[in-house]
């Protein structure tokens, strides 16, 4: 299958290519010839240069308005851009899982979502995944000729190709299909500065143990250059917005470092973070289940431990 087109669906925000897309382009190079699929207003020169640098020969642009938020329209657009691609890679998000499903129904592809890697074996795509709150590793073989794989962020190290030029921009002719669903309203969620939770290399989360005060959690996240997460108890209390919730029904994160502060480690929460590289927990209760999965656990009051940790880290940074 190598030598074949491997399409990578680009995630971009304010015209800037998101890090997981660069990871997927890197992975795509080991599977065939990467092309990028860009939905929305055409990419800037800078964006096409970035896509080229990570291995995309071309970027195929499908101009889509707000209707592109509807899964069926989005899937049709990706389909129009990838008729020749036996492999399509995308970032594992709730929306993309729907897009992958719809596209597969059109093309007969087999789908794996939440994968942490993919490779070719005997002409077929095989993927790695962790399941059951990251307590098991499984390897799945896509037996169909076509494969769609949705990958979790932070599972491939993104690297540039030496001396690669910008990707050539190609416009895909596309007419959005008539669909029964209609967007009545879209209200933007105010985006916080920094990397989105799902893509962050470092996540610092606070739970009920913060008692609603996220200042220390935020400060620790800042000094580590990470994003802020939370448990459902914290978002239910209204201490922090829903977008910050980590867990099986919230955002699944796989950062290099996860710091859990005042979090008991309920199975629902663990399901969304247990595959993280290094896990550190601060909890006042020595029997908290979070300690069972922590590389380093500190039994103590976060109001004592975090300020000291922040000060030490700031000192280290300044040194």
């Amino acid at each position: 299958m190598s030598g074949n087109t491997v399409a990578v669906l680009v995630e971009h925000r304010d015209g800037v290519v998101a890090q997981p897309t660069l990871e997927n382009l890197t992975l795509a190079r080991s599977l065939g010839e990467p092309v990028a699929v860009w939905l929305g207003e055409p990419p800037s020169d800078e964006a096409s240069a970035t896509l080229g640098a990570y291995g995309a020969g071309a970027v195929r642009v499908v101009e889509l308005g707000a209707a592109g938020r509807l899964p069926k329209v989005r899937a049709a657009a990706v389909g129009a851009a990838t008729p020749d691609a036996p492999v399509v890679l995308m970032t594992s998000t709730f929306l993309n899982k729907e897009v992958a499903t719809l596209l597969a129904l059109e093309t007969g592809a087999g789908v794996v979502v939440d994968a942490s890697g993919a490779e070719l074996a005997d002409g077929r795509v095989e993927t790695e995944q962790t399941v059951f709150a990251a307590t098991w590793n499984i390897r799945t073989r896509v037996v169909s000729e076509r494969a769609i794989v949705a990958l979790r962020p932070n599972t491939t190290q993104a690297t540039e190709v030496d001396g690669a030029g910008a990707a050539t921009v190609e416009t895909v002719v596309f007419e959005a299909p008539e669909v029964p669903e209609r967007l009545v309203a879209v209200s933007a969620v105010e985006r916080e500065e920094g990397v989105p939770l799902a893509e962050a290399r470092v996540v610092v989360s606070g739970g009920r143990g913060t008692n609603g005060d996220y200042a220390l959690v935020r400060d620790l996240a800042d000094v580590l250059g990470g994003a802020v997460g939370a448990t459902r108890d914290a978002t239910d209390e209204g201490w922090i917005s829903h977008e910050h919730m980590v867990g099986q029904t919230g955002t699944t994160v796989t950062p290099a470092l996860y710091v859990a502060c005042g979090i008991s480690g309920a199975v629902h929460h663990r399901g969304g973070m247990q595959a993280s590289g290094t896990i550190v927990a601060v909890n006042i209760d020595p029997d908290a289940p979070i300690f069972e999965i922590a590389d380093l656990g500190i039994v103590g009051d976060l109001n004592d431990v975090l300020p000291q940790a922040i000060a030490t880290l700031q000192e280290h940074k300044g040194a």
Partner: peptide, 28 residues
């Protein structure tokens, strides 16, 4: 089925896990 599970194995337990009690220098 378009996919089949080829292999499944429990993830190995993490080695060298440590839990320490804060006695004043937990943050450090």
């Amino acid at each position: 089925a378009r996919t089949e599970v080829r292999d499944a194995s429990p993830r190995p337990e993490k080695a060298d896990r440590q839990v320490v009690t804060d006695t004043g220098d937990g943050g450090v």
